[in-house]
Write a protein that binds this DNA or RNA. Structure first.
Lengths: 228, 228
DNA sequence: TTCATATGTAAATATCTTGTTACTTATGGG
DNA sequence: CCCATAAGTAACAAGATATTTACATATGAA
């Protein structure tokens, strides 16, 4: 089956020819790039950088391999772009949280829940990050995009800690980076290792009641860690 | 060129010929299997299941591809065996800890430090587990070996918690599985994401003083989580 | 309209990769 | 010793795979 034919199922003809001839795609560079990025994100997340196939990415994007190389240069450059977008999305969602006006303890709890929910709702993020770390971070280490978006990453949490310390609900001397890492860790580890974890512990770690147990345990843990 | 001829370039005949003759490897099935397993563990850890190459595994094992298929059947079966061994090694090291006679708090701290050190000294374990989870646990879900070695995995920690609760140092109502997962998570996440983490936080997470900071933070966190 | 160029398609290429096959050699039991 | 068999080697086959090339078509500016 030709690629032109492969599209005929979903579309019909714009006027001229009666039988199912190919409908040339409307030229839309931006849309094509978006479809490729979205498809790549999914494939890279599912199979890792090494396991993902350029052919499959192109096919799922309803685009052509040639377009991938045209727009992104190489499989690895595409992977880099996907990673940058994934980090950008997370950070943007974080920024939207607006925790500054909330009571420190409430704000911290909300941040813990947000982090957990983000991982849960964006499972791609975790596998993408895992894949990049398997490759020792080579795709992001020279990424100005990541460096830019990750600037002042700890600002919000630092403010939160200072506010809480001043009001006496948090103890002093808490390292914001260590806490930030811990908040991520408690959720991330559970979810990334959900398959082996379910085997080892002989239960379905993704069952709704188990997920609920986990997030409540995490919230409680983080609060205990910072409490005065 | 025949297959026999193809070897004559590097080697000459044993005994009959005077100059540097080939030394045929001593036949030792067990040793060869061990070399293959060790090499495979390293390659799978370095590149993941998909990224590892059977040829490279054979070469690094100073063995032959044929031997891999002879002894293990397939790349995936070899991967399964490597995983089973990796889990077995961790669990055996855990069993050697002998925490029963220690004061609960001291014992728990020792367990947290053990877990951290094990990940630090066996970085292969983390990437192997990551790789298996990328593959949704398919290689271990039917592994009787893993099911066998992971039996009563929470026993030690449960005993510890009960002892601590009885003596009043630990609070009651702590879920041993959640705690176990958290102890692993705080170390595992930091180490598996050390590359992207170092970029995002603009510091070398693997620098000795940073590692020290992390383990001390983790020990303190776990103690706070369980304290009465 | 005309034409340069951005966008898109199909096929080729060169290299890799897993698993197999045909073959060689060491080992140990009779 | 003799020889069946376990252990080991090299080359091959079939199918993937990333990237490139040759070509086609839509678009918009002149």
């Amino acid at each position: 089956m030709t690629q032109a034919e492969s599209r005929e199922g979903t579309d019909s003809l714009p006027g001229t020819s009666p039988e199912a001839t190919r409908i040339p795609r409307k030229r839309d560079a931006e849309a094509t790039q978006k479809r490729i990025l979205s498809s790549a994100k999914h494939e890279f997340a599912m199979s890792g950088l090494g396991g993902a196939r350029v052919d499959v990415i192109a096919e799922k994007a309803e685009a052509n391999k040639r377009m991938i190389y045209h727009y992104f240069g190489s499989k690895e450059a595409l992977f880099t772009k996907v990673l940058e977008e994934a980090y950008g999305d997370l950070y943007e969602a974080e920024r939207k949280l607006k925790l500054d006006h909330l009571e420190p303890k409430v704000a911290l709890e909300r941040f813990v829940r947000f982090t957990w929910n983000y991982y849960l709702e964006n499972p791609d993020f975790i596998t993408l990050v895992n894949s990049e770390n398997l490759h020792k971070g080579v795709h992001l280490e020279s990424s100005d995009v990541l460096k830019s978006v990750s600037k002042n990453r700890l600002h919000m949490l630092e403010n939160l800690l200072v506010r809480g310390q001043k009001s006496g609900v948090f103890r002093s001397g808490i390292d914001a980076m260590q806490l930030h890492i811990s908040i991520a860790a408690l959720g991330y580890y559970y979810l990334t290792n959900r398959y082996t974890g379910s085997i080892v512990f002989r239960c379905d770690l993704m069952a709704p009641e188990m997920l609920k147990k986990r997030i409540e345990f995490n919230v409680d843990s983080i609060i205990r860690i910072v409490s005065a």
